[in-house]
Computed example of a mutant assay.
Amino acid sequence: MPTTLKITPPLEGVLCITLNRPEALNALNTQLLGELADTLNSADCDDNVRAVVITGSAKAFAAGADINEMAERDLVGMLEDPRQHHWATITRFRKPIIAAVNGYALGGGCELAMHADIIIAGESALFGQPEINLGIMPGAGGTQRLLRAVGKSLATQMVLTGEPISARRALEAGLISEITQPELTLERAMTIATRIAAKAPLAVRLARESLHKAMDTDLATGLRFERHAFTLLAGTADREEGIRAFQEKRPATFQGH
Rank of each mutant, 00 (worst) to 15 (best):
N68F: 13
K249R: 11
D47V: 04
P22I: 00
G64D: 06
E69S: 05
G174I: 04
E226D: 14
M137N: 13
A140L: 12
R250S: 04
A24E: 15
V204Q: 08
G139C: 12
V204N: 09
G34W: 11
T39Q: 11
L19H: 05
T8V: 09
P22C: 03
Y104T: 08
R148C: 12
Q129R: 11
K6V: 11
E240H: 09
R73H: 05
A105L: 02
A24F: 15
T185V: 05
C45I: 04
Q157A: 03
Y104V: 03
R145K: 15
P164Y: 09
M215P: 10
A121L: 01
R205D: 03
Q181C: 11
E35P: 07
L175R: 02
I17R: 06
T143V: 10
R188Q: 07
P2D: 02
I132W: 00
F254R: 02
N41F: 13
A173W: 04
D38Y: 08
E183R: 09
D81C: 04
A149V: 01
N29T: 00
R50Q: 05
L11N: 12
N20H: 13
P138T: 03
D66L: 08
R227E: 14
T161W: 13
Q181F: 14
I98P: 11
A197L: 09
L219N: 03
A193S: 07
P251D: 11
L154F: 02
A51Y: 07
G235L: 07
H257L: 12
M215A: 15
R205N: 01
Q129M: 15
I165F: 13
T191R: 14
T217G: 06
R73S: 10
K213D: 14
E248W: 04
